[in-house]
Design a protein around this nucleic acid. Structure first.
Lengths: 145, 145
DNA sequence: GGTAAGCCTGTACCCGGGTACCGGATGCAA
DNA sequence: TTGCATCCGGTACCCGGGTACAGGCTTACC
């Protein structure tokens, strides 16, 4: 069995700071890896995949806590015939994600409209209260937070 | 012409803190509104729409600077036959958004798979390096940041 | 066995995005 | 014109997500 990645190697491969690995470990996102006799961390190869997943999810606007939850949902053995609480958390997360997708699509199409109208069409309404309007499509009026 | 919203009313309507309005003003996200003779802010009704747009975009993982940019792209008069720099920024933003959508869709479908497999199917691989794999679909290996 | 690169723990700091609090001025209604 | 809610500017603080640094131990290679 090969010795595994050292922390520096993993950090480099994942494009994150070495300190970040330890930070994630403290946060419980990254399991404590085994150690060399002298106490140096030795990570399994999958840790790299996990890190990339974390980074991607983060780019999408998930907090680290949420990422931890997502990772749990995917990772955890969820006992056979899982306790439905996990299922429910996954379902919830899924609808959250679907909402985000819909919102992004609304933004994207406004931008697209703005682009291929070349702004001249939009300029017709530019005089006053018009221009936020394409974006306003995604206004749901939730008193966010 | 009606007097406009007072800061408290606007904050309440938008579900944000009063301080946040001033913060956004400092950041340049919210234009300085006109003032009452005594110096109290009086916002036009569109400010509410704008705030909702800001909040939505934020939920999607845009930073305030990015939101400012998006809002500019939509709001600004971008002179007729706009300087292409704006067009280009919009195009860039659009591909960013499309990327986010694709990533979210990847996450969503893994979650969906996990859900309707009821985790039992996934459990077959659960022994070791398997479970992050559905999420790993969206691993692009970008050395993010 | 010497030595440079790498890693260890711990603590302190940074940035983004707000939020709270202060003492004082304003708005508005009775 | 008095009284209370609201708002003002300014400054200080909080939280999430890292990042840096110090002082000391390990590893790896000659």
């Amino acid at each position: 069995m090969n010795p595994g990645l050292r922390s520096g190697e993993l950090a480099e491969a994942a494009g994150v700071n070495l300190q970040t690995l330890r930070y994630y470990e403290r946060r419980g996102l990254l399991a404590e890896p085994r150690r060399s006799p002298g106490g140096h961390r030795l990570y399994p190869a999958e840790a790299l995949t996990l890190l990339r997943v974390i980074k991607t999810a983060q780019r999408l606007g998930f907090t680290l806590d949420e990422v931890a939850e997502l990772v749990d949902l995917g990772t955890h053995r969820h006992g056979r015939r899982a306790d439905t609480s996990l299922q429910r958390r996954a379902a919830t997360k899924l609808t959250e994600i679907e909402t985000k997708i819909a919102d992004l699509q609304a933004i994207a199409s406004s931008l697209r409209a703005a682009l291929d109208a070349g702004c001249d069409d939009l300029a017709t309404c530019a005089t006053s209260a018009c221009c936020p309007i394409p974006l306003a499509a995604l206004d749901r009026g939730e008193p966010t937070r």
